[in-house]
Nucleic acid binder design. Structure first.
Lengths: 215, 215
DNA sequence: TTTTATATCACGGAAATCGGTGATAAAAGA
DNA sequence: TCTTTTATCACCGATTTCCGTGATATAAAA
């Protein structure tokens, strides 16, 4: 790297933010312009300082208000010249896929070493993309196993019923709560079982928990 | 701070480790002696270098091999003069309680600002303990709601059966797998339901998922 | 050693779930 | 407009769960 690059960092964990800033402050060619805890803060800054040349935005995925995926999409549509690097603890195939589709320029894990971080930044600033081997692997696996999980879409009612089922209510109780016939709830239960490819109440409950329907 | 303090940092996320090290390297009075990704590495080092004066161990909770709680217990029993500071993303009351019981000298969140981190370290090195306000609050809440969760202890068999139940196996199938009578499994199922204070299979499954029995 | 906890097995009946196979009306989408 | 999806309701039989009330033997703890 010869020129000086201006970058922005977004992460809702202050200590990580400070740490990352501290690491990058050791690099003479990098100047950290802004650190933010949410995606909206970053966007706000970019919109106000339209004339400032920002080279790279480093962002986490999990953030309040606007997460990393949304931030990426916004940046790429409003400021397509700005590069983005995602640094996250998550290795969920879905998120990674969303980010590649949003044209993020790189993705590394928070498990990555400092050297890999710098390598990723350097590559991206020089115009290449950088996805760590681990992330590439996750993406590959997701591609091949995609057929097995074709994004099951539940209707509002189905979701509502599933939630109650997972909360230990019986069919009759759910019927009473929703002012529906017991038979209707039974139908939903059966549909849910076949739709979600599970065997019984346990499977339904696990699905509900995993999808965060009970939080 | 006047003297120079020697500290060790343990966290399985390399980037956080680097970041923290970088932050602390700015402090002249602090010397980072070792960074490690597991508790066992730290213990190994301490045992080999018994004569070296280590003032503080900063540790995460979630780490492979030996987690922060176990590390704390080990340090406090083998090297009681070494202070410990836990820096974690977790705010689980149970973990925090375990750590206070293990005589950890401080606990702050990874959401904490750099200033709070330094304040915590300073306080601890000067002989005081430091628990962030947020953590204190979580602890308080845990105290008052303690009665509701009096640490249910499951036996090996119960855990085994619960796991299978939550994995959608029927009573008969579990009996076959474990070479037990169907009646035996029914007994376990009933015991589990009353022991865990749930109503049915859904409750059992949720408990299993929340306790991480299925991972 | 006495008590308690654990692991195992048994019966019976009520209640709930599971699986299949329907129907109807309204809403949404093509 | 025609088709598909969604939401609702119904019957039936088999299976499973749920609940109570037991027993026995062994291991652990007091």
């Amino acid at each position: 790297m010869s020129a000086t690059y201006s970058i922005i960092i977004a992460d809702d964990h202050a200590m990580f933010l400070d740490g990352l800033t501290s690491i990058l402050s050791e690099e003479k060619s990098i100047k950290v312009i802004l650190t933010a805890k949410t995606g909206t803060q970053v966007l706000k800054y970019l919109r106000i300082n339209k004339d400032e040349k920002i080279d790279l935005v480093i962002t986490d995925i999990n953030m309040p208000e606007m997460d990393g995926v949304a931030l990426n999409q916004a940046i790429k549509s409003e400021f397509p010249q700005i590069k983005t690097l995602v640094v996250s603890m998550l290795e969920e195939a879905k998120k990674i896929k969303q980010l590649t589709e949003a044209n993020a320029n790189g993705y590394i894990s928070k498990n990555a070493e400092k050297t890999e971080l710098l390598k990723a930044i350097t590559n991206i600033l020089e115009g290449e993309n950088y996805f760590s081997p681990r992330i590439k692997q996750v993406l590959m696996e997701a591609m091949f196993s995609e057929k097995s999980s074709p994004e099951i879409a539940l209707t509002k009612r189905e979701t509502e019923v599933l939630k109650l089922i997972a909360q230990e209510f019986t069919t009759q109780e759910i019927a009473d709560q929703l002012f529906l016939s017991k038979h209707t709830i039974e139908s939903y239960r059966k549909n849910l079982i076949s739709k979600l490819g599970v065997r019984n109440l346990a499977g339904l409950t696990r699905y509900a928990v995993e999808k965060g329907l009970l939080a």
